[in-house]
């Protein structure tokens, strides 16, 4: 029953978000029907655009899973951006300096990048477990450390021939883009990360629902003290949860910088890290929900430009409309939760 409820919540939130977007479109003097028509057409009208939508969704699936996973343990990993940056930096470093067969190189990159992300998240996890430093503060700080580490490392060791601000182009050997995949999707920049993302959804779902580890992690999330009383080692689980969360964000970094992008630029905090929070909220922290809401956000991201091109909606308003849809879609869940909690309390009191 509960699962149906979260489905309806998510759908209601999406509808609420779209309605809010429609109101805004109407306010800015455009026809919402036409606006949404072009928005969805822009995300889905041909194979290339579907590929692009999936490419946008790939990164969001990873960051969404990262945030959702830590939520399950009662942790708020707001540092997916930083973990993504470290994963991306590691992947870029290997991609630009190691020469070996693709079949060995790509798994190596994936593992190294994910480990870097895991390590980056383990630090705030340890601080939380050992010293009770709030993970929100710690992960935000880690984001900036990652940002400036990239800012220093790329120009110092991996800069291009002329540009100080971005790394050299990733060679085809180390890229997650594959010719056959690009051809299927008619020249889209979709990359093999989508398969990794799909696998991650399944693996995380299994970990959470079918393993002792998942049970322990969730128990810590539900009630830390009860879990401790039940003999679960809470600090270990906190560090582990953050590490797995960071592992996923690290994968986001590898597939984003070596698949979606063709090099790594400095001075940019990847917005996917923050969007991951909205994805997780809309997906009710379930891996399957995250996958679905990532595709939805992917459509919004890749359809936005076409909506702008076909209607009189200026790009800045277009961004605002997308932000409003995301905002309502995400907070809708919160509102329903709040309402649920209130009704539950009332029924207990009665």
């Amino acid at each position: 029953m509960n699962r149906y409820k979260s489905l309806f919540t998510a759908l209601a939130a999406v509808v609420l978000g779209l309605l809010a977007g429609a109101v805004f479109m109407a306010l800015s003097g455009s026809n919402p029907v036409a606006g949404f028509y072009y928005l969805f057409r822009g995300g889905l009208m041909n194979l290339e655009r579907i590929g692009n939508t999936l490419a946008s969704a790939t990164t969001l699936i990873f960051t969404g899973l990262a945030v959702a996973f830590s939520f399950k343990t009662g942790l708020f990993n707001i540092g997916a951006s930083g973990q993504m940056l470290m994963g991306g930096l590691t992947a870029t470093a290997i991609g630009l300096s190691v020469q070996m067969p693709r079949i060995v190189l790509l798994p190596l990159i994936v593992l190294a990048a994910a480990s870097a992300g895991a390590l980056w998240a383990a630090i705030p996890g340890f601080l939380k477990a050992r010293f009770n430093v709030h993970e929100v503060v710690a992960t935000i700080m880690m984001n900036w450390i990652a940002y400036w580490t990239v800012y220093y490392t790329i120009p110092a060791y991996f800069k291009g021939t002329f540009l100080e601000t971005e790394s050299r182009r990733i060679p085809a050997l180390a890229s997650f883009r594959a010719e056959w995949l690009t051809n299927i999707f008619r020249g889209s920049y979709i990359n093999m990360g989508i398969f990794l993302a799909a696998a991650a959804v399944v693996v995380i779902a299994i970990i959470l629902d079918k393993t002792t580890l998942g049970f322990e992690l969730k128990a810590v999330g539900f009630n830390r003290h009860a879990a401790e009383y039940a003999g679960i080692h809470v600090p270990k689980n906190i560090v582990l949860s953050m590490s797995i969360s960071g592992f996923l964000a690290g994968l986001a970094g590898a597939t984003y910088y070596l698949g979606y992008a063709v090099n790594m630029q400095i001075g940019v905090v990847p917005s996917a890290g923050i969007d991951g929070i909205a994805v997780a909220l809309l997906g009710a922290n379930s891996p399957w929900g995250v996958a679905a809401s990532s595709v939805f956000f992917g459509i919004l991201h890749s359809g936005k430009g076409f909506m702008n091109a076909m209607t009189k909606v200026p790009p800045e308003i277009g961004d605002t409309i997308i932000a409003i849809i995301i905002y309502f879609a995400a907070t809708g869940v919160l509102f329903t939760r709040l309402w649920e909690r209130l009704t539950r309390k009332r029924s207990k009191e009665a």
């Binding site: 490419a55 920049y189 063709v262 991201h301 936005k304």
Partner: peptide
């Protein structure tokens, strides 16, 4: 049009 990022994609 205003791209959402500064990557080639």
């Amino acid at each position: 049009l205003k791209p959402s990022g500064t990557t080639e994609a």
